[in-house]
Structure formats: structure tokens, C-alpha cells
Design a protein around this nucleic acid. Structure first.
Lengths: 123, 123
DNA sequence: CCCCTGTTATATCCATCATATAACAGTAGG
DNA sequence: CCTACTGTTATATGATGGATATAACAGGGG
């Protein structure tokens, strides 16, 4: 997998990286038990600092997407904490739905976008 | 309308305020043509700095939710730019859907949350 | 004329982001 | 055994953004 980092984005580099890895897991480009590249090699590949990659990995560990093994590095291990994720998603969706409502975007249109994204990730 | 600001949140104060105002518009607590409180009075009400409120208002102006009149202050005026909002929402939904997919949260469950949020806002 | 409106200009303090250099402990392989 | 690689930690620096404070200006209303 290759990572696309936008250095002009206002989103922090380590968050862009974290989100892309979550996307990679969702799209089955990373499989359970598989190791992510080492912090140093990935930093070299992308052209950013080692600590920035480490920060992304630490966040992924905190959020339950990987477990870190001293030998194998960051290993994909998604824990099944649905409750916490549901609350988190509900908060994020609230703003999305509020914006939509203001602009007369219907719930059906949101549903369509969600479906398109699910299907896009499954191939 | 009363605003609930969480000073311990990692989300910036001006963004919390902006989101709550968008929510207020969506929930029809602010109506088209109505004025928001002045930057100074709202700052006093919430207990934050004038410039922080001003930053929220400026963001809302930039994003097409209010127009600023020197006399009336920030007036609710939602422009109908659906295209730009759709793109923005699609980006935000991508991360949401990726997280859901990792945790085996189905598209039906997302649809349900979206519907609940729409209904909650409409009363 | 005074008060309130948004707006602008500085300045300061603090947290975060991203970088750099360095060192340490554990493991795998030659 | 030694080298090379892993994550981890510590420390320092510069840049940026968030939030604050004080101040001043221009315009409209009563």
C-alpha cells in the first residue's frame, strides 16, 4: 500500500497517516496479524520524521486497531469494541447531519453516500 | 438558545461554537434573517474571549451560514451551495465508514443513526 | 453626542505539531 | 558474538495555531 500525504492540508500529518491506515484495514489491504512497516522505514518512504509515524502508531494502538510487539512492530489487531466506536461515530455524524439539514440534503442522499462508500471499500 | 462549551474538550472552542450554531440552524432555533448575539455579548454569556466568538462567526461567514451586517451583526443566511457541502460531507463520511467497517458496524446501523439524528433535529 | 455594532492591529502565553539527534533495551540472523 | 534492526524514551528546537488581553477605528441608532 502506498500512502498519500498532503503537506498542504490543515489536517495534522500523523492524523492523515492514521486515517489512511484505518482505511487500509477497512479495505482489507492490511490483514489481521500482519505487521505495518517499521516506524523508521515508513518515515523514509513517506519522507517525514520517525516520531510522526510513531505518533500515528501510538494513536492506532490507543484506539484499538493495532497491538505493538517489540519483535514484529505494529501488528494489525482490531478489537471488537463496538460501543465506544458507536458513540464516537454518533458524535461525528451529528455535525454531518446538521450541515446536511441546513443545505436541504435529505437523509436518502446521506444513505446513498454511505452505501457508495461501503461498496467502494469492499473491492 | 444556550450554548454548552466543554473547556476540557480537545476540540477548539471556536469550532465547538461554530458547530453548535450550525446545529441551532438545523434545529430551527435560529431562523433565516435572524441575528446572532453580538460578539461581545455572546463572549460574556459563555465566558470566553470576544475574538474567539469572532473567529467562529468569521468561519460561519466563510462557509456560507451567515452574512455579516455592520448594523445587525451576524445574520443567518444559509446559501444553497449543495455541491461543496456534498464533497465536504463525503470526505467526513469516508473516515466514519472506514472505522465502522473495521468494527463490523453495518451500513444499516449507520443508516439508523442518521435517521435518528434527522428525527431528533426535527423536533 | 453617546453607545453599541463589527473590524483590525498588536502582543502575550501556552499547547500542539513536526523536526532533529541521541541513546537504550530487546530480538533476529549471520 | 556481533551487527542490524525493532520499539521506546528523552531532550531540544522552530513553527503554527488557539485563546487571551488591550486598544483603537468606522459606522449606524437612539
Amino acid at each position: 500500500m502506498q500512502f498519500e500525504i498532503d503537506f498542504n492540508s490543515d489536517e495534522a500529518l500523523y492524523l492523515q497517516l492514521r486515517n489512511q491506515i484505518i482505511l487500509g484495514i477497512a479495505m482489507d489491504q492490511f490483514h489481521e496479524g500482519e505487521s505495518l512497516p517499521s516506524v523508521r522505514s515508513l518515515a523514509d518512504m513517506i519522507g517525514i520524521n520517525m516520531h510522526t509515524v510513531n505518533k500515528a502508531y501510538t494513536a492506532l494502538k490507543q484506539e484499538g486497531y493495532v497491538k505493538v510487539d517489540r519483535r514484529k512492530g505494529a501488528v494489525i489487531a482490531v478489537d471488537a469494541d463496538r460501543a465506544g466506536t458507536m458513540d464516537e461515530i454518533r458524535r461525528e455524524l451529528q455535525t454531518v447531519v446538521a450541515k446536511s439539514s441546513c443545505r436541504n440534503i435529505s437523509r436518502e442522499e446521506i444513505h446513498l453516500m454511505v452505501d457508495e462508500l461501503f461498496e467502494w471499500m469492499e473491492r
